[in-house]
Computed example of a mutant assay.
Amino acid sequence: MGTRYSAVLYSSAPHNTKELEQQLNIAVTRVDLQMSNWRPDSELMRLNELAPGIWMALPTELLWVLHTAIQVGVESAGAFDIATGDLVDAWGFGPKGTPGIASEREALKCQPRLSAATALEFDFGAGRVRKRHPVHLNLSGIAKGFGVDQMARCLEGYGIHDYLVSIDGEFRSRGGKPDGQPWTVAIEAPRAGVRTALGVLQLGDGGLATSGDYRHFYEQDGKRYAHTMDPRLAAPVHNSVASVSVLAPTCMLADAWATALMVLGPEHGSTVAKEYGLSALFVLRDKGEFRQVWIAGKASQDDVSSS
């Protein structure tokens, strides 16, 4: 997935660490082979190239992620939508890495857009999907979180129940350290080019994901464009939110909702987070400073604390 993954774990039973490393690598590689927009031969890219109306058999994991992405898309009223691959590419955040012609980007804004919920049809009994309409799917807002969950499932399969696994800035944790201390991770300050901690979170059992505008962006004609797309505007998101960190039962859900809340913005995003019982930390830009807004959902103070 173009980044690094890690696993920290404790177990009273003996384990072959080389075998664990191998199986964790297999787990994340399988996700990459299925869901990458950077691999022309991935299952997702094969689906993107397929003409509408033709059924395609897909692995269970990919079907699961596609269906979850559509659910979050519906619940967020379209703020999260995986049918944005054309936008990602046009704005220069796809495999080509360069923005398209400005007139082409403007044309995309004027075209009616179809959501993934409208464009995809599922046949779960046969394990297949087809496109009703031509769309280009992008799973960059959810696949990494699912990869973290797969690492957790890998360790659970070995009877390991005290761990912290991560891919880049997405985490899944369970249990704690041998001395009874919880897993503690830093929330990065959203400053471009500077890696400093804004605060820390103590994690319980579940997933944590952060979406922000300070790592993947570029400036053009005096304007700053970040990688998160607002499907409703057919353009990069533009509001006061610098980053959103979300706690959820799984990292896949945390990943998708962090993107959705980033797009929704502080007011609407806070309302939606409360509606769905999400715990979220909004970091807002306010006159050159950062302001934090904490939304406490189903997580209790025993599970999560910030500083």
Rank of each mutant, 00 (worst) to 15 (best):
W183D: 04
P112T: 03
K131D: 09
I187F: 05
V148C: 04
E188I: 02
E188S: 03
G127L: 11
C110Y: 01
G180N: 14
R195P: 02
G204P: 00
G157V: 05
G207M: 12
Q181H: 14
G141N: 06
H133P: 08
G207H: 09
G193D: 05
L198K: 01
V185L: 10
V185I: 15
Q202P: 00
D168S: 14
C154P: 07
L198A: 04
I167V: 14
R153H: 14
Q150H: 02
H161W: 10
A117L: 06
R153C: 14
Y158C: 03
G147I: 07
L208A: 06
L137V: 07
Y158R: 09
A152I: 00
L203V: 04
R191H: 01
V129S: 08
G206M: 05
G193E: 11
P134A: 07
D168T: 12
M151T: 13
R195S: 10
T196Y: 06
G175M: 10
L155T: 07
I142Q: 13
H133V: 13
A186N: 10
A116W: 04
V185H: 08
D149K: 10
I160Q: 01
L120N: 01
L208E: 06
L137K: 05
K131R: 15
F146E: 09
I160L: 03
A209Q: 04
A116Y: 12
R174M: 13
A107G: 00
T196D: 14
V129M: 10
T184R: 15
R195W: 12
T118I: 03
R172L: 11
E156A: 14
L208I: 03
V165R: 11
I142L: 13
R195L: 10
F122G: 03
W183Q: 09
A102N: 00
I167R: 10
E121F: 00
G141S: 10
T196S: 14
A126M: 14
A117T: 07
I167Q: 10
D162V: 00
L201T: 08
P178T: 15
S166W: 11
E156R: 15
G204F: 02
R105W: 00
Q111T: 01
L203W: 03
G145Y: 12
D205F: 00
A143H: 14
A209R: 06
S140T: 14
C110Q: 06
N138D: 15
K109W: 03
G159M: 07
I160V: 08
I187R: 02
P134E: 05
H133Y: 15
R130Y: 07
P112G: 04
G145A: 08
K144D: 14
V148G: 02
N138G: 11
A116G: 13
G193M: 08
G193V: 03
Y158Q: 05
V185P: 11
A116P: 07
L164M: 12
S103A: 15
K109P: 00
R128T: 09
Y163I: 05
R172C: 11
A209H: 05
Q150S: 05
R195V: 13
L114S: 15
H161G: 07
W183K: 08
A102V: 01
G199H: 02
